[in-house]
Design a binder for these strands. Structure first.
Lengths: 218, 218
DNA sequence: CACGCGTCATATCGATCGATAATACTGCAG
DNA sequence: CTGCAGTATTATCGATCGATATGACGCGTG
């Protein structure tokens, strides 16, 4: 966190640039929404975590709902920047392996996104519809097309694209999103980079069991 | 739901038996806690869903926190009643297959429990510590011992007990807990009993890939 | 029929929620 | 140096939260 002051904005009025406040609010909102859900997160706590005052949220984002959407947009932007394209030159299998490694690594570094998605996933709502239509469906279609192509080449386990998506987003991402619980259970082995690579290999062992030589982790 | 009246308790004072109120409150609390989390669920909405008044929650459960624990206890009691023992006579592999089928079936019929667990799993809290120590750890140890025994017999995929637990609780249960999202994504194919059995077979295909003849679904 | 225990129903408390109005201040343009 | 646009800060609104006090009521007991 770039600014972890407990008290709200500095008394000396040394004004921060506006983009910094917005970025800090987005970062704080991601943590709070991921921890307590949309209804449970409080705009006062988000503002406090960002070192700002509560009305600044409505000033910069007009409403809690808009702040939530901006937070999700922001996290997906971060994720896209961290993931390689699937249609790059070279064997599709290698691109798929690299994409999965990058996704698992991102989930380890930013578990907030998977947490926010899972918090919304269980109940129909306007937020869930927006989330699926805006962010999930386009990405699912890309992955599904890649998987079907792989399968047509005779590569990959006997799973539908939907099952692959479920396996990656649940087994793959839950390992880091639910780290507090897994740690209490004695399962989690730390969340460093090596743990992310190891977990990606576990997922790949299920998805591409026959592929012997996989691309090394980038 | 046994009593789906929108208005709170009947005006005619035709008193319901106390156990009925408690049971209805537990059922309503499971739905609301699963939908909105502990912080987001409101005791007034829970009471209304159960056809009761809000102060009756404090009367029968003393606090919202105690109601949450009673709800979790109740759901685990339901689950235990639906699951066969792992140490029954006969091959351990068959017992394991039956247990997994029953677990997936229960998750399809009562997705509230997995939702509540996942809502708590992402943030350290006293509730999470209680949940893990009271309910999850004992059950994990039984499953882990069974899996290690299976592995020592040369059966099962090359996975640790922790990975098996993660796979079952994430990939296995999330399929039904996150049904609203998967439905919007076009992945979910209904939540009938056949879908539960099919999903159990998908999980088993990963866990016990070599076992050709599995026990039929009970 | 009358008593009394157990439960219900209403009213209300203080705290906190998201949102807004009103004011104060900063920093840049001229 | 002045004025204005943009932002920060304070104060406060109505709604809702969990919890409790209070008294009424149902119903089995004697």
């Amino acid at each position: 966190m770039t600014r972890a002051t407990t008290a709200p904005a500095d008394r000396t009025r040394a004004r921060r640039p506006s983009e910094s406040i917005v970025a800090d609010l987005l970062e704080a909102a991601a943590v709070e929404f991921a921890a307590h859900g949309f209804a449970g997160a409080s705009t006062r706590r988000i503002a406090q975590r960002a070192g700002a005052h509560q009305p600044q949220i409505n000033y910069h984002f007009t409403s809690k709902e808009q702040l939530w959407r901006a937070t999700v947009d922001h996290l997906f932007t971060l994720m896209d920047a961290a993931l390689p394209a699937l249609d790059r030159p070279g064997p599709l299998g290698h691109a798929f392996v690299d994409l999965l490694h990058a996704f698992i690594r991102f989930s380890a570094e930013h578990p907030e996104l998977d947490r926010i998605i899972n918090l919304e996933a269980t109940v129909p709502s306007a937020r869930l519809e927006w989330l699926v239509a805006t962010h999930l469906t386009p990405r699912f279609e890309v992955v599904a097309a890649g998987w079907r192509q792989l399968r047509s080449e005779g590569v990959g386990a006997d799973l539908t694209a939907g099952e692959v998506w479920e396996l990656i987003t649940s087994f793959g991402a839950m390992h880091f999103a639910n780290a507090p619980m897994l740690s209490l259970l004695g399962i989690h082995e730390g969340d460093g980079r090596s743990e992310a690579e190891a977990h990606a290999e576990r997922v790949l062992a299920v998805l591409l069991p026959t592929a012997t030589g996989r691309a090394p982790a980038p």
